[in-house]
Amino acid sequence: MKTLVTTAASAALLMLSGMASADGMALAQKNACMSCHGIDKKIVGPAYKDVAKKYAGDKGAQAKLVAKVKAGGKGVWGEVPMPPNPQVSPADLNTIVAWILTLK
């Protein structure tokens, strides 16, 4: 019985992480993030996989990146500035950034 519960819980977590991934990508597309960022190639801004790699292991990455996307920024990835995105809700920003950080 214990094994069944553990297996069911693991399956539920995998399903939820898959849904979060799909939601994050859909929100990135909806909010035009994919116009400047590719998943595995630089367009105007860095590839999302490069962002995930740079911030891997950084426990504060989620909050840092949400703030950066909201406010915009310049200089971390080159001279082309990223415009601010105040129109994107905090919940959507968190979902998008969480998805980006899962990419490998």
Rank of each mutant, 00 (worst) to 15 (best):
K104M: 02
A67I: 00
G78D: 11
M1R: 08
A98K: 15
M19N: 00
A56P: 01
S21W: 11
K104E: 12
D50I: 00
S17L: 13
D23C: 01
G57H: 05
Y55A: 01
A63L: 05
I39T: 13
T7G: 14
H37R: 08
L27G: 02
P90S: 12
T3F: 07
A8H: 03
K53R: 11
K68E: 08
P84E: 15
V69D: 06
Q87L: 00
T3W: 06
G73T: 04
K42S: 04
V51H: 07
K64R: 13
P81S: 10
I100P: 05
G18D: 01
H37M: 09
K41A: 11
G45F: 05
L27M: 13
P90H: 03
A22I: 10
N94W: 00
M19G: 02
P90D: 15
L13N: 06
A32K: 15
P86M: 09
A32S: 14
A61E: 04
W77E: 13
D58R: 08
Q62H: 14
Q62W: 04
K42I: 03
Y55G: 02
I96L: 08
G73D: 03
C33E: 08
L101E: 04
V88L: 06
K30T: 08
K54G: 00
T3N: 12
K54W: 03
K68I: 06
K30S: 04
L14T: 13
S89E: 03
M1N: 09
M34K: 05
S35K: 12
N94I: 00
V76R: 12
K54H: 12
K53V: 01
K70H: 13
K2I: 13
T7Y: 05
M19Y: 13
M1I: 07
G45I: 07
G57T: 07
A91W: 00
I96C: 04
L4G: 09
K2R: 14
V88G: 06
S89R: 05
N31P: 01
Q29I: 13
A9K: 07
V76C: 01
G60K: 12
T6C: 07
V44R: 14
S10K: 03
A91Y: 01
W99G: 06
G18V: 04
C33V: 05
P46S: 14
L103D: 04
K54D: 07
L103V: 05
K53P: 00
M34C: 03
M15A: 15
M34T: 15
P46Q: 10
K104Q: 13
L14G: 15
M19R: 07
D58N: 15
M1P: 12
P90Y: 00
M15V: 14
I100F: 08
M1C: 08
M19F: 12
K2S: 08
A22D: 02
L103Q: 14
G45H: 10
A28I: 10
A47R: 06
K74W: 00
M19K: 08
K53M: 03
A52T: 03
A9H: 05
M34N: 12
A52Y: 03
A20N: 10
G24A: 11
